[in-house]
Design a protein around this nucleic acid. Sequence first.
DNA 1: ATGAAAGCGCTAACAA
DNA 2: TTGTTAGCGCTTTCAT
Lengths: 353, 353
Amino acid sequence: MMTNSKSDSVTVADVARAAEVSKSTAARVLGNRGSASPAARNKVLAAAERLGYYPNALARAMSEGRAHTIGAVIPDISSPFFSSVVRGLTDRIREAGLEVLIINTDNDAEIEAHSLEMLATKRVDGLVLAPVIPHGSGMARLLAQRGLPIVLFDRRSEGLQDLPLVALNHEHAAQLATQHLIDLGHRRIAVATQVPSWVGRLLDPAQPAERPSAQRLRGYLSALHQADIPIDMRLIINTPYDHMGAADAVMHGLAGLDATALIATDSVVTHGAFLALQRLGIGMPDELSFVGFDDQDWTTLVSPQITVLTQPLRGLGVAAADLLSRRIAQPDEPQADVLLHGELLIRQSTRRV
Amino acid sequence: MMTNSKSDSVTVADVARAAEVSKSTAARVLGNRGSASPAARNKVLAAAERLGYYPNALARAMSEGRAHTIGAVIPDISSPFFSSVVRGLTDRIREAGLEVLIINTDNDAEIEAHSLEMLATKRVDGLVLAPVIPHGSGMARLLAQRGLPIVLFDRRSEGLQDLPLVALNHEHAAQLATQHLIDLGHRRIAVATQVPSWVGRLLDPAQPAERPSAQRLRGYLSALHQADIPIDMRLIINTPYDHMGAADAVMHGLAGLDATALIATDSVVTHGAFLALQRLGIGMPDELSFVGFDDQDWTTLVSPQITVLTQPLRGLGVAAADLLSRRIAQPDEPQADVLLHGELLIRQSTRRV
DNA sequence: ATGAAAGCGCTAACAA
DNA sequence: TTGTTAGCGCTTTCAT
């Protein structure tokens, strides 16, 4: 048994010729559409088998005008957050018969622009975009205007107000975390996060809080507000977005604060804050109650185990896939945002004050 | 300024017409190849700009016969190992002007087969494959025979002996870890890993040790061998590949073993072993020295900080990209395996006995 | 330097 | 049910 060693692949026409039917008959049975007599069907299938035919998705995409592919444009696939989300996304989108092209932007607006352009060039059927914030390239808006279905993920950047979003309900999540501490009797609750410059207007609902950290901070503030706990700006510790920097910021920020609890609003700052508490030798939960974000491996390996607010990672990816699928199927049907709820995992780092 | 709202995109022919040149002239300047007079060039570029032309990569792939895309077929993008590797891979491969299609197999041979077939259908230029072990589908071999460039990653499965491999030098890595303990005076060194059924023949070099765990176990054995330390099979603890199961296995396996040191040969088992030691209340490094695999976040957050053998994650991805690029460029040039070295990060969980 | 024309392998509209 | 015919948008000879 030998195959032709020439790399030129077998086409529908080849199969048709071998099966002694017309090209369109062969195309119909191979494409599994239209109609064909059992006789023809068998001949074609046999010929295809014999010649080792397998379809050329490129040609199909070309003539259909659809690539059966979507793009996922995200900051960094190697982060635990995005890698799990993407897993959910790809699994779900494959069920719909599409593939996913993943691009990392490293939160660089220029890379984002190039990536989006490249994907447009590839004629993807749609895009999931975790945009660079506060403002990404204008590219996404341009593509959306052209009619390309786009779903925003995790956050919305300026100028993309009209695109549907799939994200954690950041504000609600932070409220949950804060409320937990309030329920435990805490009133001096510090928060470590990336504080936006317009923090003063954060409780003003007119101000759109685009970045997740800002929305989470708002959740913190509104929980305090509802509990009639006065807001002390010194309790809001501004940190950079790397765990070493965050650790330093928390070490300094916490000094002389008489806080009885601390919330870190994302995984990186949670890591940094934990380091800071370790270095300061502050005992949890006795001296301080601590709530982190994201259910990272280490939060159950250290002692005490850390109470965290966890996100439905794969669920977020699945939701993004579903929303995008809907947009692709019904481009004109407006789609509402999908905000998933976080869940508080109460462990050992928090206790009644 | 308005664009035509019809979604039909602007083609080379459209640009040519607008620029009042022939289709081929327009194609040449847009494709940046062949020659064109400055005058024609300007007219075409201006027209393209004006009409909002952007190329159709599908059509290009179709006519070139190359998709400018590679496939990465791996067990699970959401694992810390593969997500970092893939990051290195995609970054590097994009520099070469290609994109990456990522497929998760969950170590299922059937999914692997379907995925490979699908990628062949897409006419990818090449593949990076972390095959299902011990034997994957026959699909990879088939595609390789057809002339598709394939690079194996992390491991080799049966029947794929002739394909080049990019991986950690697993055996050497485990040797490093074991030697470290030997240097500290340990002689009763336990190892937690997935033990192959043919463990008895492990030191026989004729037996190809395909799975990384087996190769790592071999590294452990040969380090002991070289140090003239007799091998005690009871020190080899067989664990399942999930951290809870591994924790149980280690708890039982360690009982009455008078081991002074323990090695875990992968990240999952390291996690499990650490849990076991915690539960047993075994103090590190006083009662037991412990070496884990992979530099996971938590290994520096727990106390004592864990001594680990770390892999060059992105480097592995970059190496895979480079090797595949070479195979694509020179399909007939045989390529040697690329084995990267691990590095021991000595921390606080190991000490002189 | 430029243009005409023939594919790449498939889908789809239309006839028979 | 079957076959004929045109494309999809690009690249690539081959003349001019």
